[in-house]
Each structure stands twice: as C-alpha cells, then as structure tokens.
Amino acid sequence: MTALKVLIADDEPLAAERLTALMKPLEGLDLVGVAEDGVEALERARTHQPDLILLDISMPGMNGIEVARELASQPSRPAIIFVTAYDQFAVEAFEVAAVDYLMKPVERARFADAIARVREALEHRDPAGEPREESDYLTEFWASDLSGLVRIAAADIDRVSAERDYMRLHVGTRSWLIHHSMTALEKGLDPSIFVRLHRSAIVRRDFITGFARNASGRWIAQLADGSEQAVGRLYAERVREMTGR
C-alpha cells in the first residue's frame, strides 16, 4: 500500500490532535505537517506536496473553502477532506470537489471510510492529477446523515422517490433526503443508467428485474429488492423502449 502524505490544517490544537490520533491505527498514512490557519496551510502544501489535506473550514485569515479553491488551481492538487463543526458549507465543499465532509467530533469508523474514499479517488486520477473521465451527468450527492453529511455516488442509488419538495435516495436498506426536484434529477442523471417510470419515481435500470401488468392493464416494474413500482401512463413508452414490446 502506497503511503499517503497527509497535511492537517486546523486552528484548534485539540482538533488537530484528534485527527492525528485517528490516523495512527490506519496503515499507509504519513503526517507531513500541521497548519494552524489557511495561509500556513497553503505554504505547507506547497512545501510538502501532500496527497491529502484534512482541512478545517472556519480558520483565521483564510478559511478552508478559500484554501481549497487556491489549491484547485495548482497542477497537482491534493485530495481534500473537510473536517468541520458546521454543516452549512456542504454545497461549497461540493463545488471545490472535496472527497468527503466530516463533522466534528469525527468518529473513527467514519474517518476510516473517508480515507478509503480518498484512496479510491486518487486511483482514478491521471498522472497530471486530474480525473481520468468527466461526466456530463450528476455523479454524486451530499446528503444529511446522523454523523453530519455523507457523499452518495449516483451509481449506487437503486431508486429515487419524491416526497413533496424533497427527493429520497434509496441505497440498499438505507435512504437519504435531498432538496431537489424530480425534473432536475431526471435531466441530471445518466439516462443510460436511470429511467423515470412515474412522475414521482426514477429507477436504476439494472435494478429492474421485470415488468408485469396489473388488473387494469397498467405496467408494474418489479425491482431487485422485491418491491414494485407502478409505471405512470405518461411513462409507459419507457417500458416499450426497454423491452422492445
């Protein structure tokens, strides 16, 4: 396992110590420095060229979002995990392509998951440090979780159901609410992977195991988890496109 060079940037000494302690049990992490504010974080990043920065958001002088934006302009930018006590910066974190967003106090298991996500993200970069492929469609979402905010890969979503002004993302036995519209999601999700079957439902194509007709002749999609999804009359043509009938 290749060691990751890690820089911690946090103006709270106890928080930095906590992150250092969380790193110790994990293999392949090499702490190359600790910065106490945003300006120092940039200086140390240029000196040590870390693979990963554990970056607080609320810091004196230059906040973590500003640091991440500055680093994004560099040829080989490090992966960023934001570690913060505030959840209102999730959208900005998404815009600067943070790999994860951890809420203080950070749980050990959640930290390990974030590090694994960094390794996966770095494996999918080309030698210049850029993603190997860019998609015109949504590839991930930030959603509220008991531990703070969690990043959900679009490809992991089984189905989406509408709940008034919110959309529920279903992944296995778990689900998360996001503030989005069904129309925007339909446009944003890759149509080769997802299909809208109802005004309030989008389903991943390979999560559909079959179709049947109910007593009134309307199509019902049979899903991999044993549940069913009614196909709206306006979307019946989608069934014919998928099945050739």
Rank of each mutant, 00 (worst) to 15 (best):
I57C: 07
S58T: 05
S58P: 00
S58M: 12
N63D: 15
R69P: 03
L71G: 13
S73M: 10
P75Q: 02
R77V: 03
P78C: 06
P78H: 07
A79E: 03
I80Y: 02
I80N: 09
I81D: 08
Y86M: 10
F89V: 05
E92N: 04
F94D: 00
E95Q: 15
V96C: 11
A97N: 14
A98Y: 02
D100V: 03
D100H: 01
L102T: 08
L102H: 14
L102Y: 13
M103S: 04
E107N: 11
A109C: 04
A109R: 12
F111Q: 10
I115V: 02
E123F: 00
H124M: 06
H124C: 09
D126E: 14
P127H: 13
E130G: 06
P131T: 13
E133F: 09
S135W: 14
S135K: 13
Y137I: 10
L138V: 15
L138N: 14
E140S: 14
A143G: 14
L146H: 05
L146P: 00
S147M: 04
G148D: 11
G148C: 11
G148Y: 12
R151I: 04
R151E: 01
A154N: 02
A154D: 04
A155C: 06
A155L: 02
D156P: 04
D158T: 10
D158C: 11
A162H: 01
A162F: 03
E163P: 04
D165R: 06
R168G: 05
H170K: 08
V171L: 09
V171N: 07
V171I: 15
G172S: 10
G172C: 11
G172K: 10
T173M: 01
S175F: 08
L177K: 09
H179W: 10
H179C: 05
H180S: 14
T183L: 07
L189G: 09
